[in-house]
Design a protein around this nucleic acid. Structure first.
Lengths: 219, 219, 219, 219
DNA sequence: CATGAATGAGTCTTCATTCAT
DNA sequence: GATGAATGAAGACTCATTCAT
């Protein structure tokens, strides 16, 4: 799951992009940018059309409603976000690739950080709009809670069995781990993106604290 | 800073509520509820008025604009959120009350959890709307980044000097600690509020992992 | 009808002011000022109340409706505007006072100019609002067309009989005379009030041209 | 500048109308009618839309704001009103066409009367709204004060040099002349449009009095 | 008398969506 | 497929007026 393998491990969901016309791409790009900046509800289709350089009607030719446009942004983003965890035969991958929880965490952070860098706007929309749209909540629960959590819990249990991780309800370990990681990523890329970060070191610190926090010997 | 002392340690900012008329309270309550549920932008003043049982004009007698109404919800919430950290002579309080970082953390979590329980809706609005309103961002930076962070960093440094906390940039420790705490609180109260939580135990786990993560001996 | 006699010749309609409370006066003053500046329709009662330093309700205690307030400004202004012509036994006054049409004109101009100087705002409201309010049009026709025109026509006929004024339909002479006078007054006080006027001379010119225009010998 | 030559002497500014859609014309017509009758401020866009038989939103597709709609009526009216005076090489026209001030006046009155007859409503709006809109005042000053006054003063000086017009500040002569003309036109078409006028004769009277008023020999 | 909170109809304007071209 | 004029419902906000205090 390291950065350089990103494209090998999970299918690019962008191949659907092949079917997109030039205008449609423009519309999506513009919508992503403005939705992220002002929120779905505060963005007008007129505004999107102007920024995309198309007529307002063109938007509705491709997306039946404004909400359709939102969904067509959020759904694939959600999929791509959890993609690394949805590989079939994840255990095998883990067995061969990451001998320690630490190595796994490092790969995970770097990989997801790379993803966020390229999809910050879409990610913002995802987390900003989920609370307001039941369908999104549903999708989120299905994808994240069910797929991701279930998978990652299995991963954690994997390392618990290896004696590397504390014997605690894996849910608590998971929450703790993800909180720390996303706490870092959000601070780093959303809250203070312009601050002067020493990325390498901060990741090291974060992993260090997580590892101490969850290491088996410590109970 | 334990729950039972909450009212001794910092003034309740609610005394301003005394000046609110009955209708104004109704308006605020309704606005908080609907803003939290649908977001500021997707909420109509008409809707708020109906839920509050007042005429639409009445809203604008008390709050010049819809945004004014939002601000009058968010600003005090932000203040109350950081209030426990803005006590003068915080160090003295710490010296006498919390001999360990662990005790401090436990008090902190319980205290803020109590606050969140009662102000969940307003808190949601706070974190949901900040990204879209520069004024709010400004206020947030001033209150959180400047006041809270600065204070809590001093607290952390206090325990670092006591040898209880790892020698690491206090910012990293802070981020890690807060991520873990808010990760727990958000999962507990926002994401899965209806799940069957054993609150005591989960807090214990969380604190345990934070403590291991940051304890001095571990570097 | 020269300036200095103004108060002798016609009753001060202001004696009704005796009955006005302090607040009522403030309301009237404020209304006059704002109506003149922005027009009746674009002025809000709230604005008037604020400027007058009274509660909005107070306005409606004194004037049943906003329109009532307008009428209570316009009606007396209209009365005062035509007052000099409504003196009973106007002819006798003329016989003894103004031997020539020229002397009459000069007195008239000076007198009405003095009035306008002190009642510019109310006069503006008068001419600006008449087109939009049928009641005002009615009053105007009754006062101006019937009283004033009739009277002044008699005056003109008086000077026609004296051989000083051209034998032409008195209506045409009247229109011409009034146009020239009000043309001057409006240019002087409404259109270019800040220009550098030599009042004496301009009046002289105006009268000269009117006199030439209407003098008997010229047909 | 006599009526029949009107289209030769200055370009019809109506050719812009070609670009107007049917609905836009309807909107303009309705707006002109209602603005003239009730005043800009007292007219609702809803009312205009209904009269024009379009949806209210359609108005705002063509005119960004209600004020825009007003301006798009007033500005061209102002332009057309002064158009006859903005002909290049006005003097040459005068030299060849109008040997006397009297001939010039007659042509002027007939020409402007023809214009007013067809644009009465727009003209009303023009003079009724100018006092309330600084932009309009500005435009008015620029068009009328600068262009028209300057040109007409040159015309007057032209006839003064010919010895036909009294040696008086041309401004006074101008004011007098225009007052008399507009006094007639306003009485005729605005104040008492329904009265039984003998147009020919009244114009003759008016010109006679103006001519006497300004003729050179009379000083 | 005077107040000012409360009203709800009405204001201008924006919006997502449709449809004829 | 793309357009953009047209829509009318809905939006935030203002208004003149009322009435309990």
């Amino acid at each position: 799951m390291p950065e350089q393998n990103q494209h090998n491990l999970f299918e690019e969901l962008l191949n659907q992009d092949e079917s997109l016309t030039e205008k449609q791409k423009k519309i999506l790009e513009s919508a992503i940018e403005i939705f992220a900046e002002k929120g779905y509800s505060a963005t007008s289709t007129n505004e999107i059309a102007k920024k995309a350089g198309v007529a307002e009607g063109t938007i509705f030719r491709h997306y039946k409603t404004k909400k359709d446009l939102l969904l067509s942004i959020v759904a694939p983003t959600m999929a791509k976000l959890v993609a690394p965890f949805v590989i079939k035969d994840l255990n095998k991958v883990l067995d061969t690739k990451y001998e320690t929880y630490e190595a796994f965490l490092k790969a995970l952070i770097l990989n997801r950080q790379a993803f966020l860098k390229e999809n910050m706007a879409a990610f913002r929309i995802l987390i900003q709009e989920i609370p307001f749209h039941p369908e999104l909540k549903e999708q989120f629960k299905e994808h994240i809670a069910n797929k991701l959590f279930e998978r990652v819990q299995r991963i954690i249990e994997h390392y618990q069995e290896l004696g590397q991780v504390i014997s605690m309800p894996s849910q608590a370990v998971l929450r703790f781990t993800l909180s720390s990681i996303f706490g870092f990523l959000i601070a780093r890329h959303l809250l203070l993106p312009e601050a002067d970060w020493d990325n390498e070191k901060e990741i090291e610190y974060t992993i260090h604290m997580i590892m101490n926090g969850v290491k088996a010997s410590s109970i």
